[in-house]
Amino acid sequence: MNKESNFHIKTLGPRAAQLLVELNEQRRSTFNVADVASITGLSPSAARNLVHKAQQRGLVTRLKPGLYNLVPFELGRATEHVDSPYIIARELAGTAPYFLSHGTAFELHRMVTQPNFTIYASSTRRVRPQTVGGYDFRFVLITDKQEFGVMKHWIDKQRFVMISDMERTIIDGLRHPAYVGGITEVAKGLWMKRDTLNIRRLMDYAQRLGVGAVIRRLGYLLEHYELADAATLEPLLSQLTASYLRLDPLLPAEGPYLSRWKLQLNVPAEELDSIRFT
Rank of each mutant, 00 (worst) to 15 (best):
residue 196 T to N: 07
residue 256 P to S: 12
residue 206 A to T: 03
residue 230 A to N: 07
residue 121 A to V: 08
residue 80 E to Y: 09
residue 188 K to A: 05
residue 19 L to I: 03
residue 79 T to Q: 13
residue 118 T to I: 15
residue 35 D to M: 03
residue 6 N to S: 08
residue 167 E to M: 08
residue 172 D to T: 12
residue 5 S to R: 03
residue 76 G to P: 01
residue 31 F to A: 02
residue 216 R to G: 00
residue 130 Q to Y: 03
residue 263 L to A: 04
residue 101 S to H: 09
residue 158 Q to F: 06
residue 202 L to K: 05
residue 44 P to I: 09
residue 46 A to Q: 11
residue 18 Q to C: 06
residue 31 F to K: 00
residue 50 L to K: 02
residue 60 V to I: 08
residue 184 T to Y: 01
residue 101 S to V: 11
residue 67 L to H: 05
residue 245 L to E: 14
residue 276 R to T: 09
residue 206 A to L: 05
residue 143 T to Y: 07
residue 151 M to N: 07
residue 10 K to H: 14
residue 133 G to Q: 12
residue 239 Q to M: 13
residue 83 D to C: 03
residue 47 A to L: 06
residue 198 N to K: 10
residue 168 R to W: 06
residue 24 N to F: 02
residue 14 P to N: 10
residue 127 V to C: 04
residue 128 R to D: 12
residue 85 P to S: 11
residue 98 Y to G: 06
residue 222 L to Y: 00
residue 187 A to D: 08
residue 139 F to A: 11
residue 237 L to V: 06
residue 131 T to A: 13
residue 126 R to Q: 13
residue 184 T to W: 00
residue 264 Q to M: 14
residue 197 L to K: 00
residue 84 S to D: 14
residue 151 M to Y: 02
residue 9 I to H: 07
residue 258 L to C: 10
residue 51 V to F: 02
residue 116 N to T: 15
residue 188 K to N: 04
residue 172 D to W: 09
residue 265 L to G: 09
residue 139 F to D: 06
